[in-house]
Design a binder for these strands. Structure first.
Lengths: 97, 97
DNA sequence: AGCCTACTTGGTTATTTGGCCAAATACGAT
DNA sequence: ATCGTATTTGGCCAAATAACCAAGTAGGCT
C-alpha cells in the first residue's frame, strides 16, 4: 500500500477513469456488453476515438473484449468501478456547491 | 446520472486522483492533517509542485485547507476517496497480472 | 521597518492527451 | 479474389499537464 510503483499503478487506473467519454462508456457497459459501433452511435465521436478510449480502459484492466465475427464486444470486468462512481456522486452531493 | 455535465464533473474528480503524487498526499492526509512543508519533506518534489498538487485536490473538493500563522494545513474532506482506493486495489489483485 | 519562514503564482519547457482523417487489418459473404 | 462492414493504427495538431526556478505574498518576530 505504499510502494511508489503501487501509486503509479493506482494512478493509472484513475487516469483511465478520468475522461467523461470513458465514464459514459462504462455506464453503458454496466447494462450489457456492447460492440464499438454501438458505443460510437450512442456517444457520437469518431469510431477511432471510441476505439482508443476502449483501449485505454482495457489496458487499465477495467474492461475486456471478445471478438464475434468482425465485431468486437467489450464488457465490464469490475463492477466495483461503478461503486467508485457512486462514491464520487456522494462526494459531490455531500460536499460541494 | 446521465447528463453530460455530470460526466464532466465526475471525470474531473478522477482526474484529480489520477496522479501518484496526489495519491501519496491523500494517504498521508488520511492519517492526519499536514502542512505543505511536511508533505514536501515526505514526498520530495519542489514545494511549488506539492502546492499545485494540493490545489488540484482542493479544487476537486477532495481536501480542504486552513491557515495557521504562516502555515497552511490540508485535511481530507471525503474518506470515501480511500474506499475508492480500496476498490482499486481489489480490482488489481482480483483481475490482473 | 526589515527579516525569515511558509506558501502560492508566473513563466518556461517537455510530455501526454484527445480529437480527426486516412490507411491498414480482420473477417464474412458474394 | 473481391467487396463491404467493423475495428484498429499512424500521422498530425491543439490543448492540457507537470516539472522547475524565480518572483510575489502573508504572517510572525526583532
Amino acid at each position: 500500500m505504499t510502494d511508489n510503483k503501487d501509486y503509479e499503478h493506482m494512478a493509472g487506473i484513475f487516469k483511465a477513469l478520468a475522461h467523461s467519454t470513458r465514464l459514459q462508456v462504462l455506464v453503458k457497459l454496466q447494462e450489457k456488453e456492447h460492440c464499438v459501433c454501438e458505443l460510437q452511435e450512442i456517444i457520437g465521436f469518431d469510431m477511432s476515438t471510441i476505439s482508443r478510449h476502449l483501449n485505454v480502459l482495457k489496458n487499465a484492466g477495467i474492461i475486456e473484449s471478445r471478438k464475434v465475427n468482425n465485431q468486437v464486444f467489450y464488457r465490464l470486468l469490475c463492477p466495483c468501478v461503478l461503486d467508485t462512481l457512486e462514491c464520487v456522486i456522494d462526494m459531490k452531493t455531500s460536499n460541494k456547491e
